[in-house]
Design a protein around this nucleic acid. Sequence first.
DNA 1: CTTCAGATTATCT
DNA 2: GATAATCTGAAGT
Length: 210
Amino acid sequence: MAPERRPRAFAPSPLTRAFFDRSALQVAGDLLGCRLRRVLPDGTVRMVRLVEVEAYVRGDPANHAFRGMTPRNRSMFLGPGHLYVYRIHQVHCANLTTRRGEAVLLRAGEPLTPGLKNPSGPGRLARELELTRADDGRPLARPFLSVLPREGPSPVSLRGPRIGISRGTERPLRFLVEGSPWVSAPRSGRKAPRRRSTPGPSFRSRRPRG
DNA sequence: CTTCAGATTATCT
DNA sequence: GATAATCTGAAGT
């Protein structure tokens, strides 16, 4: 008897495609506060609430796709709603693709299921969700990986400069949930990121839609 | 083929 | 606050 296998999607659903087929900037803002559900090959469910993301857009020198398609970034050209995972310094970082050549980097999440340790920081988040380069290019679809709507009201979000890049730092393409203790700290591996006393002047607050 | 910088993090002072 | 770890992808010669 062949072992039971879960169905494997070859493309995102139409709804998923529609959600992601926009600019990374817009998707990033809408993604904040949504839940990300990962189902491991053995069926284990791991879910986080996204509290920090970054948009990588067209004409953006920090975007891996800035100079067109390469073997490394080919997943960013598969169409909206795919996973783009790259590796840096022996660490994996996961993105969700939006429009062609654009993507949203998943930087931090609030753990919603037992077993998740510290999904704060892109490397830790990808690790906790067990997303590696082997998952690069996979469509965002069940059961593998799904984005679920926000629960309750929209969070108060902040926008500010992105982290860890040397070019394109002037644009406020980093989105975070104000007050979340799971937001990553710019230059520290702390478990409990120090809360900035007050958002800097470069940060812009955005009220919940209501 | 060689060089080099990098969307990070753990660990040390 | 500063730096090593560790190695791939991409650009340069």
